[in-house]
Design a protein around this nucleic acid. Sequence first.
DNA 1: GGAGTGTTTTGACATAAATCAATAACGGGG
DNA 2: CCCCGTTATTGATTTATGTCAAAACACTCC
Lengths: 261, 261
Amino acid sequence: MSQTPPPPLHLTAGRHTRPERTEGDLQHCLLCDRSRGGLCNGIDRDGLEALAHSSRRLILPPGSTMVEEGQSAESFFNITRGTVKLFKSLPDGRRQITGFADPGQFLGLSRSGLYAFGAETVDTVHACRFQRPQFEALLNDQPDLKRNLLAAVTDKLAEAQEQMLLLGRKTAREKVASFLLGRAQAEQTMLGDTPPDPTPVAPVPMTRVDIADYLGLTIETVSRTISALRREKLIASTENHSIRILLPEALRQIATGQTAI
Amino acid sequence: MSQTPPPPLHLTAGRHTRPERTEGDLQHCLLCDRSRGGLCNGIDRDGLEALAHSSRRLILPPGSTMVEEGQSAESFFNITRGTVKLFKSLPDGRRQITGFADPGQFLGLSRSGLYAFGAETVDTVHACRFQRPQFEALLNDQPDLKRNLLAAVTDKLAEAQEQMLLLGRKTAREKVASFLLGRAQAEQTMLGDTPPDPTPVAPVPMTRVDIADYLGLTIETVSRTISALRREKLIASTENHSIRILLPEALRQIATGQTAI
DNA sequence: GGAGTGTTTTGACATAAATCAATAACGGGG
DNA sequence: CCCCGTTATTGATTTATGTCAAAACACTCC
C-alpha cells in the first residue's frame, strides 16, 4: 500500500554495506533493508530495541528444514544471509518451489495458524526467528511495522502473480531467461545502490532440481536450455554457482516473449 | 497473521444472508463478510461510518475494465456482487488469469503506485471503490482494518502459492478438477454457514477462454477434460453456467494427484 | 590424488497437450 | 421463432517438453 514509505532508518552510519559485512549489527537481528520490503522503515529506537529483544539468531546448514507444510506456525523468520526455498508438494512427491527468500526477506506468515508451505535452506542461512505471540504483539505496538509488513506481503503477491504468468504461459526458454534475470535482479537489490553492471551476475546457489521445481520444468529441460543460451553467447558460466548475463537486453526480450526463436 | 481474529461484527441482525439479498445494506459498501477475509471485523461503528463515507458504489456490466496493468493505482475495490478476473499479460497477448475475485474480496493493492495486473468484470459486478489517499488514511486510523487487510493479503498469497503448484506441476485433468472444487468452495464460502451440500455446485460464470487462461491450458483441452469428467459421471452440467459435482471425494482425489488414471 | 557418490549434461524416444480444422450448441436481437 | 455471431465441442495431427538412459563432470573423503 505505502506509496511513499518514510526513508529507511539506518542502524549503521552512512551508506549501507552488503549483509555479509555487517555481522556486528546482525546481532540485533537487523530488520532494516535498504531495498523495498525493509520491515523496520520508520520504526523508532525503542521499537527497534523491542524487535531485537524478541528475536533469536539462527545459523542453519544447507538443506535444513525451517518450516513444514501443515505444521503449527510458531515462528516468523527474517533472512539475513543465504537463500531459502519455499515450496508446496503433492502427495506423490511432485513439488513446486513458489519462491526463494534472499537476505532482507521474511517468511512464516500464516492465516490459519498452520504453515501453508514448506521452507528449506538452499545454502548456509543466517536468520532471525520471532516467536509468533511476541511478533503479533510487536505488530500491534508498532503501526509502522504492520504497515511495512503489509507492503512487503503486497510485494510478494505481485511477485507470485508474475510467477503464475511464467508457469502458465511461458515457454521453457522464456522461463529460464526470466529466472536468470530475476536472480540477477535479486543480487542487484541485495547489493544496494551500486552502479548497474552492464553484464550482471545471477547467483545460482540452488541445484537444477530446485530450478526445475521453481520453473515447472524437468532438470533435463533446464540443463538443455541453459546450455543453448550459453552456446548462443547470451550467458556465460562463472566460478562458484553463478551465471554472467552477457546480453541482458537480449535475455529480457526472450523473457517477455518478444523474440521469434 | 491473525490466528484468532475477533468475531465478525454483523451489520444486519441475526444470521447473514446471501449478498444478493442484502441490497439495502450494500448502500454503505458493506465490507463485512462472514467468511475469512472480512475486512471490517472488529471495527467499531464510527469506523464503519468512516468506511462507508469514503467509498462509492459502482455497478459494472460484464467485460468492464476495472484496472489496467501499469496504470496509476488510484482506487481500491471491494467486490459485493459478481465476479472479477485478475490477470497479467505478455506483449504478444498471452494472458494468465491469476485469480477470480468473488463477493467479499478486494482488489487494487499496489506497492509501487502502479497496478501490477489488469482486472475485468466477468459478469455484472457491484463493487465499492475507495480513493487511494482516503483508503490509506482509513488504514492508519483503523488498526483493525490494517490487520484484517494484512490477514486477507496473507490469505491471497497462500492461494497464489496453491495456484503455482497447480500451474507448474498438475496435469490438465488435475487442474480442471482443482478448478471446479475451488469454485464450489468459493460458492460455499459465499453462502455462509449453510449445511454442506453432498453434491455441491460450482458456479462458472466465466468462458472457456478464461478458464484456460486461469489453468494455463487451451480452451480445447479444458473442453475435452470437462467432457471426460462428465462422461465419467463425476460432474454434471446444470442450468445457467454451473456444474454440479456428483462425486466430490473422487474429484478431490483427482485434484491432488491421488489417482492412477 | 584417486575412488566413489552425487549432479549435470547430452542423446534417443515417448507423450500430454497444443495446434489446426470442422461441426455443434448457445444466445441475443429482430 | 429464427437467424447469425459467438462460444463450445470434437477430431486429426504436430510439437514442446517429458521420460529413460548413458556419459561427463565435480565434489568429498580417505
